[in-house]
Nucleic acid binder design. Structure first.
Length: 581
RNA sequence: GGCCCGGUAGUUCAGUUGGUUAGAACGCUAGCCUGUCACGCUAGAGGUCGUGGGUUCGAGUCCCAUCCGGGUCGCCA
């Protein structure tokens, strides 16, 4: 009858139908309630919690919280009034007749398991093995596994082949800072950990694999953010041969819609997801990763104010945001918005409120003639109780500031619908931009993207007007991925790099493998790589990416539990020809 | 690297204008309790107030430096 040495059932599976049988459970002592003659123990494992009852007065002395035990006895029904509806196993309990201690807990817990999420993060990370006993965190990791498994299945179903690419590879000159690994056999030379399998997946296309994917670890030596783990992260990396931008979008829509609907009850954007041009996104949302749950839109009022004698706005870019119902908000609301505006570097935050009878109120109103006031009302379809906020600054900053005001207004006015995943593609990124440091033309994103109009555009158009087949996918204001139709024609590649100031020799030298491979017949190809950690973060509703990674580093790129990075021996250093100064 | 916020018991926090012996809750230890489920009750232990310096009769509190943590900007093709 008993199949295991340690247990016959797990702590989440006993039910009324098991009553009258004997069972053996193993797990951690979650809580103990000692009533003298009777002791209740909530026994916890990966699967759940079951109440175990001891009548042995010695038991309480042997047990402590987080002790690991195996306990055996009959499964008994609970009296109606002692049923615990909070537990799936709450209608039964195990009456302990024999018990073995499998693993003692010798120390006081650094925090209580059930409330570990409220503990200081460095303490949690140092005791991550305990933190992961917290059922919420534990479930996040389980869900992560299920999400990855589902995405993998979906990609395979769509005909994609999973291929592993090297972890030890060469440094790539563009992009983020590399993690370097010194070579023992080649003095003074280094491997680099891949920032992404970019070159390899393009080479796989040249090899004819047609549809590649990988749950790919990526390594970038960049500083952390709340949605960016330092050091390493995972992407659902995929690439498709003979594919257009729309083919890639169809694949992304398919796998993301499937995944998000499978793991959440929230509304998910139905494919096809909205396509928003980069330029429009910057103007209307003030960012290239708009949160479409926020209904507020930014209006361009520059030409309106060009004709008005109001010195701070005249001749400068001006943006407006209409916030419905905002005129009814308290004085402190406007004060808080002003101090937020000052915090993000604005000099002020002008606004006009629409009172009853459509009268306009606000310091700027006196600069507007009757006629101009009517024009404003018509142009923006202003309604009673609306407030129109103004943002003005230089061309460089104005959109970003308007975007921050837009999202802050959305939050403070409670306009952001929490029950939806709003997906969109941002398309038509510019191919080139002007470097702020040098004033020279440079690639804005991926130098391997195909310029729209291909060779003809590169030869005839102003580089700053050329758009790329370069795109992002954004969900609720979180950038899940960028991607591109790749430039697979060596001549176009050379020309594009030439515009960005790289001579052909340098292209051959720095991107030799790709450049060379493209000489041997390369198919047109395109792809993208949605971030797995961010997908899991969205689906669990966690605010921090570290809540969905089993063993994350802290924001200072250290593993406090494993003490990484750490010192190594002299011998190790000698072997890799490194001397620490 | 810049800026903002923080560091007081194992944990989460309070600590007034600088003023007696630095408190609470949870946890921990011991005892009591036969139906609890965040059990309850009683008692107890537990502190270099991040570190170093300074001001002061007197510093958890004020000043300077420094370390650590979180956020943010830079960075993230």
């Amino acid at each position: 009858m008993y199949s295991g040495t340690y247990r016959t059932h797990n702590c989440g599976e006993l039910r009324l139908e098991n009553i009258g049988t004997r069972a053996k459970l193993a797990g951690w002592v979650d809580t103990m309630r000692d009533h003298g003659g009777v002791l209740f123990v909530d026994l916890r494992d990966h699967y759940g919690v079951t109440q175990v009852v001891f009548h042995d007065p010695e038991a309480a002395k042997l047990l402590g919280r987080e002790t690991v035990i195996s306990v055996e006895g009959p499964v008994v029904e609970r009296d109606e009034e002692t049923v615990n509806e909070k537990l799936k196993t709450g209608r039964i309990e195990l009456k302990a007749e024999s018990m073995t201690i499998l693993g003692k807990s010798h120390h006081q817990m650094p925090f209580e398991i059930a409330s570990s999420k409220e503990t200081r993060e460095d303490v949690r990370l140092r005791y991550r093995f305990l933190d992961l006993r917290n059922p919420v965190l534990h479930q996040n990791i389980v869900l992560r596994s299920q999400i990855i498994s589902r995405m993998r299945g979906k990609m395979q179903e769509m005909g994609f082949t999973e291929i592993q690419t090297p972890i030890l590879t060469s440094s790539s000159p563009e992009g983020a800072r590399d993690y370097l690994v010194p070579s023992r056999k080649h003095k003074g030379m280094f491997y680099a950990l891949p920032q992404a399998p970019q070159i390899f997946k393009q080479l796989l296309m040249v090899s004819g694999f047609d549809r590649y994917f990988q749950i790919a670890p990526c390594f970038r030596d960049e500083d952390a953010r709340v949605d960016r783990s330092p050091g390493e992260f995972y992407q659902l990396d995929f690439e498709m041969a003979f594919a257009t931008q729309d083919d890639v979008f169809a694949t992304a829509e398919s796998v993301l819609y499937d995944t998000f609907t499978a793991f959440s009850d929230k509304k998910v954007s139905k494919p096809p997801f909205r396509r928003i041009k980069y330029a429009e996104s910057m103007l209307r949302y003030g960012t290239d990763k708009p949160d479409l749950r926020n209904p507020l839109l930014i209006e361009d009022l520059s030409s309106y104010f060009a004709e008005i004698d109001f010195a701070p706005f005249k001749g400068r870019p001006v943006r407006g945001i209409v916030a419905p119902g905002c005129a009814l908000m308290s004085k402190s609301f406007f004060e808080n918005m002003l101090s937020f505006a000052m915090d993000i570097g604005m000099k002020g935050l002008g606004y006009i409120s629409v009172l009853e009878g459509m009268a306009l109120k606000g310091p700027i109103v006196k600069f507007l003639s009757e006629e101009k006031q009517r024009e404003l009302i018509d142009m923006l379809s202003l309604k009673e109780n609306d407030t129109l906020f103004f943002i003005s600054d230089g061309e460089k900053l104005v959109n970003r500031l308007a975007g921050q005001i837009r999202s802050e207004l959305g939050k403070r006015l409670g306009l952001i619908k929490d029950d939806a995943f709003e997906m969109c593609f941002i398309v038509d990124f510019p191919m080139f931009g002007i470097s702020e440091e040098t004033g020279e033309i440079e690639f804005t994103h991926n130098p391997f993207s195909m310029p729209q109009g291909e060779m003809e555009a590169l030869q005839t158009k102003d580089p700053l007007d050329i758009l790329a087949y370069q795109y992002d996918i954004v969900c609720n204001g979180v950038e899940l991925s960028s991607g591109a139709v790749r430039n697979h024609v060596p001549e176009i590649m050379v020309r594009a790099f030439e515009i960005a100031g790289y001579p052909e020799e340098q292209v051959k030298e720095k991107f030799g493998a790709l450049y060379n491979a493209f000489q041997y017949g390369a198919p047109p190809h395109a792809g993208m790589a949605p971030g797995v950690d961010r997908i899991v973060m969205l689906l669990t509703g966690e605010e921090s990416i570290r809540e969905v990674i089993a063993f994350p580093m802290n924001s200072n790129a250290q593993d406090l539990m494993m003490r990484a990075p750490g010192a190594v021996t002299e011998q190790q250093l000698r072997e890799i020809h490194i001397r620490i100064r």
